[in-house]
């Protein structure tokens, strides 16, 4: 087939050049062409949120986003280096320690959604957390521990950000 088009994608700070069929979604290209399988394929129609990635910091469903449209943008997936993103690393830790992870299939999307939320609001309310998760299905946890994990991450990041003197004084 000679219907391939060249794409150049910036994913987690790494430049990938590939030739793809132009109708391939970002999800398909991430998983199949770039072998970045941390982003999950579930409903394929933007209902479950398992394939959520960040494009220029905004959470989107990769299954509804054409790969060619993502050129010239910064794509961040769950494989993004946590070492370079302390917020992401804290969210991942909080998900683990609060029991927010069961089967784990929704987890990459949930973590990315939480990352986008905390970028927008450092101390979201419970209702704001729920609203941020409304595009995400989780069948295992009943959401409680996911909400608690995001609260925990926000709290831990606030403590880390607080001036040392304030922490000593408390």
């Amino acid at each position: 087939m000679n219907d391939l088009v060249p794409v150049s994608l910036l994913v987690n700070g790494v430049r990938y050049d590939a030739a793809i069929r132009p109708w391939r979604t970002l999800l398909e290209v991430l998983r199949e062409t770039l072998a970045l399988t941390g982003t999950k394929r579930s409903c394929g129609e933007g209902q479950c949120g398992a394939c959520t990635v960040l494009i220029d910091g905004r959470a989107v469903n990769a299954c509804l986003y054409l790969a060619v449209e993502a050129q010239g943008k910064e794509i961040q997936t769950i494989e993004g280096p946590a070492a370079g993103d302390p917020v992401l690393a804290q969210i991942q830790r909080s998900f683990a320690t609060k029991g927010a992870i069961q089967c784990g299939f929704c987890t990459p999307g949930m973590v990315i959604a939480a990352r986008a939320l905390l970028a927008e609001r450092a101390q979201p309310s419970e209702d704001e957390i729920r609203a941020a998760l409304v595009g995400h299905l989780c069948r295992c946890t009943g959401y409680v521990q996911i909400i608690e994990a995001i609260q925990d991450a926000a709290g831990a990041l606030a403590r880390d950000a607080a001036p040392v003197a304030a922490r000593v004084g408390s």
Binding site: I78, T97, I101
Partner: peptide
């Protein structure tokens, strides 16, 4: 903490 939690949280 679940043994596989961080593996799952990081894809």
């Amino acid at each position: 903490v679940k043994k596989d939690a961080l593996a799952k949280a990081s894809g």
